[in-house]
């Protein structure tokens, strides 16, 4: 399979502080790839770099095109859905309006159908449809964020710590749904996680990021089964 996203020697900095020191990785078409790492390793920055939200050096190739240096809006309009760090909920708007914004750039007729599919994944969103999104629980906001990103009909979905700050049961639910989404949607996924166990179960390929450098890369299943690796790097 050809790579949908290919990142080569990517560097990124906030002001004077370098966060990424030249990382390279690929996301294959139709697969789930995960970036693992501790807090501050540069996972979120990597996703932001892909979406043109930080200043970067290096190459980002997506669907045969160089997208580094493009404005966030233009990256997104190339069908890259981003579930950001902190979920990015429009707190003042309703669930309905949040979802409509997800489909903002689309003019095709499939939007209605896609709304129904989202309700199928996340029945909660249907119950809360007319409510202000600020009143949703953390888990519900995470669901809303995923639905919002999927409503773009993305070719590539970037997920920033979908488990962050959620109760274990809800995390399990969300990862179950992500598993379904992997099966049912035609989307490649790049998921960033601290919870390595869950992410490795979902992914086919994994990279381990440590203070802005990739230290391990390989088949997700292999990493999952390699006890020494798990113990020394992933801590479980």
């Amino acid at each position: 399979m050809p790579a949908l996203l290919e990142v080569v020697d990517l560097k990124a900095a906030y002001g004077q502080t370098n966060v990424l020191h030249g990382i390279s990785f690929v996301v294959d078409e139709g697969e789930v790839t995960t970036l693992l790492g501790a807090n501050g390793a540069g996972k979120t920055t990597t996703l932001r770099a892909i979406c043109g939200m930080v200043r970067t050096e290096g190459e980002i190739r997506y669907a045969g095109e160089r997208i580094e240096g493009k404005a966030t809006e233009d990256v997104v309009r190339r069908k890259i859905g981003h579930v950001p760090d902190g979920r990015g909920t429009f707190m003042e708007l309703t669930v309905e309006e949040n979802m409509k914004l997800g489909a903002y750039t689309r003019s095709d007729r499939g939007v209605r159908e896609d709304f129904e599919r989202m309700f199928d994944y996340f029945p909660r969103l249907k119950e809360r449809y007319k409510q202000q999104a600020g009143t949703l629980s953390g888990g519900e906001q995470q669901m809303l964020a995923i639905a919002r990103a999927l409503l773009l009909r993305p070719k590539l979905l970037l997920l920033d710590e979908p488990s962050f700050g959620l109760a274990p049961l809800i995390v399990r639910d969300i990862f179950e749904i992500l598993g379904r989404i992997r099966q049912e949607e035609q989307v490649s996924v790049l998921v960033v996680e601290q919870n390595a166990n869950l992410a490795l179960a979902l992914a086919t390929r994994a990279y381990l990021l440590e203070t802005g450098r990739i230290v391990i890369s390989g088949n997700a299943a292999d990493i999952r089964n390699d006890e020494t690796l798990r113990r020394s790097y992933l801590g479980y």
């Binding site: 979406c51 939200m53 404005a71 966030t72 809006e73 997104v76 309009r77 981003h82 950001p84 990015g88 909920t89 429009f90 914004l101 997800g102 903002y104 750039t105 919002r148 990103a149 773009l152």
Partner: peptide, 8 residues
């Protein structure tokens, strides 16, 4: 920020 991420 979120608006840019939905393409606004």
């Amino acid at each position: 920020v979120s608006s840019r991420l939905v393409g606004v």
